[in-house]
Design a binder for these strands. Structure first.
Ligand SMILES: [Mn+2]
Ligand SMILES: [Mn+2]
Ligand SMILES: [Zn+2]
Ligand SMILES: [Zn+2]
Lengths: 140, 140
DNA sequence: ACCATTATTGCAAGTCTCTTGCAAGTAATA
DNA sequence: TATTACTTGCAAGAGACTTGCAATAATGGT
């Protein structure tokens, strides 16, 4: 169970499992789009969970430190989004530029390209971001 | 000449070529890395050009509207960067996570993938962003 | 070259996302 | 249950970017 896995990660780094961390985790677990801090905050308010926006930021940063959450900076959004990594593999996203809907692209075409780039640039390639925008079926 | 091309674009949209716009353009023209607004501001100060940071923001937005400048949102940078599109083709970037150096990748591997994504997601794909991070030759 | 028109600029203030300081609250361990 | 130290909420701050407005300057016609 996710909460158990994460409790271990927290404990291993001298941190504690708390009411608010459980609430953020459970929301991320049942949501299938990456959420921004303010969206997490708003949804938890709706769920009658007492939490401060500052705590949301601190919580997603802890989860990111533990490697349990990915932080996405989508083009021109001006805010980060967060999604659970646990149990999902590396992937990318496409976002509708009309309604904002975000869909997982369960692929990554960049393994070979990375090698080519390292040869050409003499960089050691670490990470990459890849994101598509367009019009979703409803907004065409 | 670039300034002539751009004067036409400005005029066609009821805008004017000004001292500050010339200064920003000439800086972007002679710079080979994408610049942030504050970098443009700082460099112009150094060049003895009197300009306000607000005007830099307004200028890059005008140039973006005219399709003459690309706005890049690099991962976790927290600020946008701008580069001239005029005379350069679509490409992507790699950034050194130590020193911040940004290098052009004169390639784009995403033509075929776009078609696949449209089939799978039923989105109409518009644009994409692709960026690599890593360690440049000096910082390894 | 001058004037009238209207876009542009600089300054101040505002917005938005995200971070930090600190006292009060609470989880973990014995 | 008592101790310890991590976590929280509130207030304040930082940084990127935007907006309101009066002063300034580019443009086009004379
Ligand atoms: Mn995803
Ligand atoms: Mn470039
Ligand atoms: Zn990938
Ligand atoms: Zn591309």
């Amino acid at each position: 169970m996710l909460e158990t896995i994460i409790s271990q990660g927290l404990k291993a780094t001298g941190r504690r499992m708390t009411r608010t961390r459980k609430a953020v985790l459970s929301l991320l677990e049942r949501t299938h789009e990456p959420l921004s801090a303010s969206e997490i905050f708003a949804q938890l308010q709706e769920d009658q969970v007492t939490i401060d926006l500052v705590t949301v930021y601190r919580t997603v940063n802890v989860l990111k430190d533990l490697g349990l959450v990915a932080q996405l900076d989508l083009h021109h959004e001006g805010q980060s989004r967060y999604e659970l990594k646990e149990g999902r593999k590396h992937h990318h996203h496409i976002r509708c530029q009309v309604c904002g809907k975000i869909v997982d692209l369960l692929l990554c075409p960049l393994k070979k390209l990375t090698k080519l780039i390292e040869e050409r640039t003499k960089f050691v390639v670490g990470d990459h971001i890849l994101e598509f925008t367009g019009f979703c079926p409803q907004c065409q």
